[in-house]
Nucleic acid binder design. Structure first.
Length: 492
DNA sequence: AAAAAAG
């Protein structure tokens, strides 16, 4: 199956080709022809499956003909977070460069002026988060009566965030004879109800089992204690294979504290959470994407949908309270066919959450014991034989186990054992992984082995600024410069 | 319990 077989225009195919993609993903192959035939669609797909391009591409062709009128957008895409909205806007820029489509990005945290101006000129594509959209709508800046195509993206997340009433209200303001596309990783009853009410005769496409985790992601639970978390994290971050990482915390305060601590220890880290000003959020994300920092400490604002190429590791510094969040968080790595690793630090109190996670994903996650190892050089811990050629010895979770390991001392700890029967797809592929920004400039091994916790360490600015990148195709990664949040003309 | 989104 080729992009050329999907019925897309030549201009669009050129843009796709320029972006380096030749083969559509499963959801793209299934969705694009249906969308082009103007059918309603329910797409059950996790992020990382190419979901975004599956509606962006056909929309560009559908909107290629016809003209927008003042304050009457021709299409509307709803996203749960500002970052996701910006990411979709990036996709329209990338694939729409051979078309003359106008677009506006309506998100909170930025001035309304430019957004209003763009609306008044008329836009073909409106990409919005619900809050700002409702705000501008209430001010009479938007008429949705000419909006013939609606995309509700990440519907389950919208539900989590309490946006469903807003979505329903918005839906009633659109013309009845519109085309509606709804995407969701899971289909809880309220979403099903929403779909029944606002979609007509939809085609349903499911490309991955809901709530399943990606087989490319090697997972492990790391039992520790609240006090021991930092040492364990530092140890894990010091592993050679950690090119870069997103570290999730449950609280914004934890995000701040941990980032501060990591920076004080010399890590090149940054942070992102919802209490930060939007420009700051953008800046931190951009630093991470460019490789200027290789650790991003994040709240769940970054858990879903964010598509950053080449994230090698995800750490759950706190085990997520909701099992869905686990699936979404670890999905920031192992994207688009690449491999990734996800470590979850767990304490005794997390036992129930972990049980729920394992129930949801239907798999038991292997435990990785990280024991205190003093200042011993890492090579003496037998690191090389910990990951390979080890008989699979799955160890089921138990309350006793979660409490088992002693709190790591102030001294650095070292991973001593993996017990895993999880797929290790990354083993075979380790060698052709992307060049890692840190590798070349890193201290010689002897020196490193004295300081197992410092692999990711040098000061913020004296590292080569190469983006962590992988050459696997993806679903339109947001890897370019961060959108300016200005509304812009496409194809300019 | 927290986070997110309008300010």
């Amino acid at each position: 199956m080729n992009f050329a077989d999907l019925g897309l225009s030549d201009e669009l195919l050129r843009a796709v080709e320029t972006s380096g993609y030749t083969q559509p993903t499963a959801i793209q192959a299934a969705a694009i022809p249906s969308v082009l035939m103007m059918r309603d669609l329910i797409g059950i797909a996790q992020t990382g499956t190419g979901k975004t391009a599956s509606f962006v591409l056909p929309m560009i062709d559908i909107l290629a003909h016809g003209r927008s009128r003042a304050r009457m957008p021709r299409s509307l895409i709803l996203e749960p977070t500002r970052e996701l909205a910006a990411q979709v806007a990036e996709n329209f820029e990338k694939y729409g460069k051979n078309h003359k489509l106008s677009m506006a990005l309506l998100i909170g945290g930025v001035q309304m002026g430019d957004q209003v101006k763009a609306l008044e000129k008329g836009v073909d594509v409106l990409i919005a988060t619900p809050g700002r959209l409702m705000d501008l709508f209430g001010r009479g800046k938007i008429l949705l009566t000419g909006c013939e195509l609606l995309v509700i993206d990440e519907a389950d997340r919208m539900l989590d965030m309490g946006f469903i009433p807003d979505i329903e209200e918005i839906c009633t303001k659109l013309p009845k004879n519109r085309q509606t596309l709804l995407f969701s990783a899971t289909m809880p009853p309220p979403i099903k109800k929403l779909a029944d009410r606002f979609l007509s005769n939809p085609k349903t496409i499911e490309v991955a089992r809901p709530a399943s985790t990606n087989a490319n992601i090697t997972q492990a639970l790391v039992p520790t204690t609240t006090r021991g978390k930092r040492d364990v994290l530092t140890t894990l971050l010091g592993q050679d294979e950690v090119a870069n990482a997103i570290i999730f915390c449950n609280r914004k305060t934890t995000v701040r504290d941990l980032n501060k601590a990591l920076r004080q220890s010399g890590f090149r880290s940054g942070e992102i959470h919802g209490d930060m000003e939007q420009p700051q959020r953008i800046a931190e994300l951009d630093l991470f994407k460019s490789g200027a920092i290789n650790i991003l400490v994040a709240s769940d604002v970054a858990a879903r949908g964010l598509d950053i190429k080449g994230v090698s590791h995800v750490f759950n510094y706190d085990a997520p309270w909701h099992p869905d969040d686990y699936v979404h968080r670890i999905g920031r790595t192992g994207r688009a066919g690449a491999t990734g690793t996800a470590y979850t630090l767990i304490t005794a109190e997390d036992a129930e959450n972990i049980e729920n996670i394992e129930k949801l994903t239907g798999q038991s996650i292997p435990r990785l014991e990280v024991a205190p190892a003093g200042r011993a050089p890492r090579r003496e811990t037998g690191r090389e034989d910990t990951r390979e050629d080890r008989p699979a010895r799955p160890r089921r979770g138990s309350a006793a186990r979660s409490e088992a390991p002693a709190a790591p001392t102030e001294a650095a700890a070292a991973p001593v054992e993996t017990s895993t029967d999880a797929p290790r797809a990354d083993r075979a592929r380790r060698d052709d992984r992307a060049p890692r920004p840190d590798r070349d400039a890193r201290a010689p091994r002897d020196e490193r082995s004295q300081r197992p916790d410092r692999a990711a360490r040098p000061a913020r600015d004296d590292r080569p600024r190469r983006a962590p990148d992988i050459d696997a195709p993806d679903d339109g990664g947001w890897n370019g410069p961060v959108p300016s949040f200005l509304n812009q003309k496409l194809g300019a």
